[in-house]
């Protein structure tokens, strides 16, 4: 037996740390313009909380988009659905939510998250089977049918829950704020940050430490070869789509409690932001989505404070700048 050893000239893998540092760089640049340390801390923490929520909503879409090549403009419907599910949990458990008991507060919050995950995951299954399966590989039809699906879903939500905005508040102990130095920090933002971060860590663990995660990462890069290795990519697609829908629902709960209200078009309104985040991050990249979401939220907050008129276009400008720097996003996935 002879051996082939051609391992002499392997290029060192480049460590792509700079894109991950962009939120920090943006914060450092913004700090002197903001001036007040307490305002800077408040804006930054608010941005981080908002970023985590957007990440939760967007991460499912980036995986579905990256792996299944599906342009799902109906993703926003799952955000709204998750928010409505939260109202269904909070309403009968108002006493728990109003209680001073941390256990009861956490229970109602956890139940709302869990219910949104289950319901949105189940509806995601139906959505994929009924609407997505017939249009795999046909982008134009995907856009049309998923927009159609989201309109139907939105109108159904209005028909079932009524056209009025439904108020919803976080559990009692998550309301209000505390001071850190001179900065006032809303408690709920910390909660949202923790949930978003847990979602991020959980996704990274699943993607990097499990075989399912390996399959998903491989599927994002080359679906056909995953199939040729003997794996049922269609089942993986369904699973990823359900997980993406469930994450959208989870994000919908967080967002509804943050904004204090629920309405059927809230998901659609957030969808543009979600698409900007996944494009900035690099389609199919969860790490890129995380960085992109924080970047978008921080810039939106800083711009809102420093130049309110600019805030209206800050996300678009950010996307233009990022794509000029890295045309395939902060963390492009090979093969896409």
């Amino acid at each position: 037996m002879s051996a082939v050893d051609v391992g002499a000239a392997l290029p060192r893998a480049k460590i792509e740390i700079l894109p991950a540092l962009t939120p920090l760089i943006v914060a450092l640049i913004a700090a002197p313009f903001i001036g007040s340390a307490s305002t800077f801390v408040t804006l930054t923490l608010a941005g981080l909380a908002m970023g985590m929520m957007i990440f939760t909503m967007a991460s499912g879409l980036t995986l579905a988009f990256g792996m299944m090549d599906v342009l799902n403009f109906g993703h926003g419907a799952f955000i709204s659905l998750g928010a409505y599910v939260a109202t269904l949990v909070f309403l009968p458990l108002t006493a728990w939510a109003q209680s001073d008991s941390l256990v009861l507060n956490l229970a109602v919050f956890g139940l709302a998250l869990a219910a949104a995950v289950v319901v949105c995951g189940a509806f995601g299954f139906v959505f994929e089977r009924v609407l997505i399966v017939p249009v795999y590989g046909q982008h134009l039809k995907q856009i049309l049918i998923t927009i159609g699906g989201s309109i139907v879903a939105e109108q159904l939500l209005y028909a079932i829950f009524g056209p009025e905005q439904i108020p919803i508040a976080p559990p009692a102990l998550f309301r209000g704020s505390f001071t850190f130095g001179d900065a006032a920090i809303e408690k709920y933002r910390i909660v949202a940050m923790i949930v978003g971060f847990v979602v991020f860590v959980a996704q990274m663990v699943v993607l990097n430490r499990t075989k399912i995660g390996l399959l998903i990462r491989a599927g994002v890069e080359n679906r056909e070869m995953v199939e040729a290795l003997g794996y049922r990519i269609d089942r993986l697609f369904v699973g990823v789509f359900m997980a993406g829908s469930a994450l959208a629902g989870l994000g919908g709960v967080l967002w509804a409690l943050y904004r204090g209200q629920v309405h059927a078009s809230m998901g659609g309104e957030l969808l543009v932001l979600v698409f900007i985040v996944i494009i900035i991050g690099g389609l199919g990249s969860v790490g890129g989505c995380f960085t992109g979401a924080i970047l978008v939220a921080l810039i939106s907050n800083y711009a809102g404070f420093l130049a309110p008129k600019l805030a209206l276009v800050s996300n678009i400008l950010l996307m233009v700048v990022v794509l000029l720097w890295r045309p395939r996003g902060l963390y492009p996935v090979s093969g896409r």
Partner: peptide, 22 residues
Amino acid sequence: ASAVARSGVAYVPETMAIFSDL
């Protein structure tokens, strides 16, 4: 293709199709 692979067939494509990010 998944069922063909599971019947004991392995495929090495011309493009190699390795998973670059893995």
